[in-house]
Design a binder for these strands. Structure first.
Lengths: 339, 339
DNA sequence: CTGAAAGCGCTAACAG
DNA sequence: CTGTTAGCGCTTTCAG
């Protein structure tokens, strides 16, 4: 392994000078700087970050806290897309991203212990509010952090504007003439579920529409079956008085609900209009193609990285505790005008 | 920050003794071991891995090499599921997983440089063969590694048995009486695409069926449009002599192809049977539900971790250069018997 | 502008 | 069984 000592010897200067050169500190003449760089290049020098981290107490490492539950971890497209984007942005600043486990060597440990063990400069929190307990010690610590999922005390939060998205969906349906609008909610223990649900109620109130309990069905998990179950339930409960439109909490259940309606002989959008949320890839290929609300996960990941790194580097900023990313209505063919 | 010196002082022993205790080395009496652990506990000690790594040249860190291309990076369900599983398994062994960027601080760098910078103990390679050039320096190095995507020289490879899967799909169709079987291939620049394509040809030959070029359509990318395009193409090319079944390279194109056939008035499976590959979640909810080949990504991730870590820890093993994970036929409703 | 020296927290011989 | 000592590779005063 090539070290700064090797370079110093080769160039004929002190190791500390080499260090300064690599850190672009002032106080190194152009000449020696040049010689150092050439020597480093020719000898194949790469800095050892462990040594650097030990000396500086800065690891250039960001930890990510992911739930390992099926359907909510990295394997969920929502989070993996955000993570991908976060990682790219963090990389631009010189930070690497490491997954934090809940064990240390062979024994159980807390996330906080793991943060200390790795000396991370900050963490990305991507676990839902249900798991607050597991991360409470890091929340209580002074580790820099950002969340993309739930509001944790004074932890900055970067998340889609679910209220805005819901309004876009609902206003659109309203505009098309729909007044009997049902809602299939995401699980309300998730921020996404809760906020969309609240927005739905607020919308009804704002339009002077009555809240028909028959038109509201809550799901308990993020699985595709929920759409099927919800649609079936809706059909049973509302026989003879079916809603003319449904606002589904997210695309997966929107399209499985759509399929279910169709299987029962209802035409979409002629008999019933459907709007989803998320604009997942699938939505463009269903029959009919699904009208939905797009959320910008790339931007979420980038902003989260920006916020976290600014906080790590103590850049003066107006530390916004909550950043909402705008959503967008994507009109396709699952909704129609009624009179 | 609490260090082993603090603990040593508290307990009244030498720092090295504390170190030994934490590493479970022999030569520490039960008594002092106990006292050390208690002190550590009460003082809230957590080991500093940077220091440890500096001294031992072992980081307990595994790097992952992911392509950042849309559709093939972490955001792709295939890889994210494998990664999730890999990370869990690695965690059990005490290793953390870090994403490797292609830059160092503010300047471009190679993956190898980044490996050295972080001092990773090994790497998981999850980039396709197309990107071999980007990683060739790590392939040429003596860094321990495992691949889950392509065969890179003597790098151990853990991957589904695509040939087996293809045979399961094709034999099933054959069993149902199909003789005119088309294939919509994945891009052949990917291992998955190439092997499934080869298996298709081998199957035809083994059954004495002629290779009808009209029945073979190759896709150029992993996007859903490809299924639509391929099905349209198939319909045009084979008008009057349509295949009775199609083996699609993966589920996403299988179901968009299915939708396309339906849109053209063909019934699935009555007019045409379809088998996919992957068993993605969506497949269970299409109309009809898609018959497909399941691959076990959880096992792939685990095995990859096992192989890599064994190699890191120099466990004697029969260093299998290629591990194929069995696939499974999932029968649903997109195929029917013909006579 | 450059160098000497101490130290970051831990491990690894080697003596005792 | 326990302690001493000398690093691991880099940064950081502080003199020169």
């Amino acid at each position: 392994m090539v070290t700064i000592y090797d370079i110093a010897k080769m160039v004929g200067c002190a190791p500390s000078t080499v260090s300064k050169a690599f850190n672009n500190y002032e106080g190194v003449s152009r000449q020696t700087y040049q010689k150092i760089m050439e020597a480093a290049e020719s000898m194949g020098y790469t800095m050892n970050n462990n040594a650097r981290a030990l000396a500086t107490k800065k690891s250039w490492l960001i930890g990510v806290l992911f739930s390992e539950d099926a359907g909510t971890g990295i394997a969920h497209p929502h989070y993996s897309t955000i993570l991908q984007s976060f990682k790219s942005r963090a990389g631009e600043y010189g930070y690497d991203v490491v997954f934090l486990n809940k064990r240390l060597g062979n024994k159980e440990a807390s996330y906080l212990e793991h943060c200390i063990y790795r000396g991370v400069d900050g963490v990305l929190i991507a676990v839902g509010a249900r798991y607050e307990e597991e991360i409470q010690d890091v929340l209580a610590s002074d580790i820099k952090r950002v969340s993309v999922e739930a509001a944790y005390g004074n932890t900055p939060l970067v998340i889609s504007d679910y209220r805005m998205g819901s309004m876009q969906a609902l206003e659109y349906l309203y505009f098309l003439g729909h007044r009997k609008i049902a809602h299939i909610s995401c699980p309300v223990w998730s921020v996404a579920g809760y906020e969309r649900y609240e927005a739905y109620k607020a919308f009804l109130k704002s339009k002077g529409l009555e809240e028909n309990p028959k038109y509201l069905v809550e799901t308990n998990s993020y699985s595709l079956e929920e759409g099927t179950k919800a649609a079936t339930e809706l059909i049973q409960r509302c026989w003879g008085d079916l809603p003319t439109a449904v606002y589904a909490g997210y695309d997966d259940i929107a399209w499985t609900a759509m399929t279910t309606f169709q299987a029962h002989g209802f035409r979409v959008p002629d008999d019933i209009s459907i709007v989803g949320f998320d604009n997942v890839t699938v939505s463009g290929f269903t029959t009919p193609a699904l009208t939905t609300i797009a959320q910008d996960r790339i931007v979420i990941g980038q902003k989260a990285a920006d916020v976290l790194i600014q906080s790590i580097e103590n850049k003066e900023m107006d530390n916004p505790s909550e950043i909402r990313i705008p959503t967008k209505l994507i009109v396709r063919n699952s909704c129609t005008r009624i009179d």
